[in-house]
Computed example of a mutant assay.
Amino acid sequence: MAKPEQRRPRRAQGELESQVLAVLRTADAPVTAAWVRERLGDDLAYTTVMTVLSRLLGKQAVSRRREGRSFVWEAAGDEAGPAALRMRKVLDRERDRRAVLARFVTALPADDEQVLRDLLDRTADERTG
């Protein structure tokens, strides 16, 4: 009797996207989807990698350009960019943005609150000056 095939545990939501971004950040230059697939060290299908890259492109977390008959990909910006985009999307789904922001700020540790205050002050100075 044949052994039942062992299934891998499902990845957490966004985990594969994070892994793809991490791989792209190790590259010295834009790379192909096949290069990304190789570096993931997993038995992922090429189409899975392409799907993840396409989703990341839609989120503006990666950029691509045509090179020959295929595309080359690179991470767009630093690691903070995708996290900031996720935060913005959560905020955009809420009806009472003011209440959400107020709750967010009051829940911050003092150090983070000070960083936020400094950033807001700097942004205000840049807009006026």
Rank of each mutant, 00 (worst) to 15 (best):
M1S: 11
M1L: 08
M1E: 08
A2R: 14
A2P: 14
Q6G: 02
R8V: 08
R8K: 09
P9G: 08
R11C: 01
R11S: 07
A12N: 00
Q13W: 02
G14K: 04
E15K: 01
E17T: 01
E17V: 02
S18G: 15
L21N: 00
A22C: 01
A22N: 13
L24T: 11
R25P: 09
A27G: 15
A27I: 13
D28I: 10
D28E: 14
A29S: 04
P30N: 04
P30E: 08
T32N: 08
A34N: 13
W35Y: 00
E38L: 13
L40Q: 04
L40R: 01
L40V: 03
L40W: 01
D42V: 02
L44Q: 08
A45F: 07
Y46L: 05
V49T: 07
V49K: 00
M50S: 03
M50H: 04
T51M: 14
R55Q: 14
R55F: 10
L56C: 03
G58M: 02
K59F: 04
K59Y: 06
K59C: 09
K59T: 01
Q60G: 05
A61C: 12
V62H: 09
S63E: 15
S63N: 12
R64W: 07
R64H: 11
R64I: 11
R65G: 09
R65L: 07
R66Q: 13
G68A: 04
R69Y: 04
S70T: 10
S70V: 03
F71S: 11
F71M: 06
V72C: 05
V72G: 01
V72Y: 00
W73H: 00
E74T: 07
A75N: 06
A75Y: 00
A76Q: 12
D78N: 13
E79P: 05
G81C: 06
G81M: 11
A83P: 00
L85C: 03
M87C: 07
M87D: 03
R88L: 15
R88E: 04
L91H: 09
L91F: 03
L91P: 01
L91E: 05
E94H: 07
D96Y: 14
R98I: 15
R98G: 13
A99M: 15
V100I: 11
V100Q: 06
L101G: 00
L101A: 07
A102K: 05
R103M: 09
F104D: 05
V105Q: 09
T106A: 06
T106F: 13
P109G: 11
D111N: 03
D112K: 13
D112L: 15
D112R: 14
Q114C: 01
V115L: 14
R117G: 05
D118Q: 14
D118G: 14
D118L: 13
D121T: 15
R122G: 11
A124R: 12
E126Y: 05
E126G: 02
T128W: 08
G129S: 10
G129I: 06
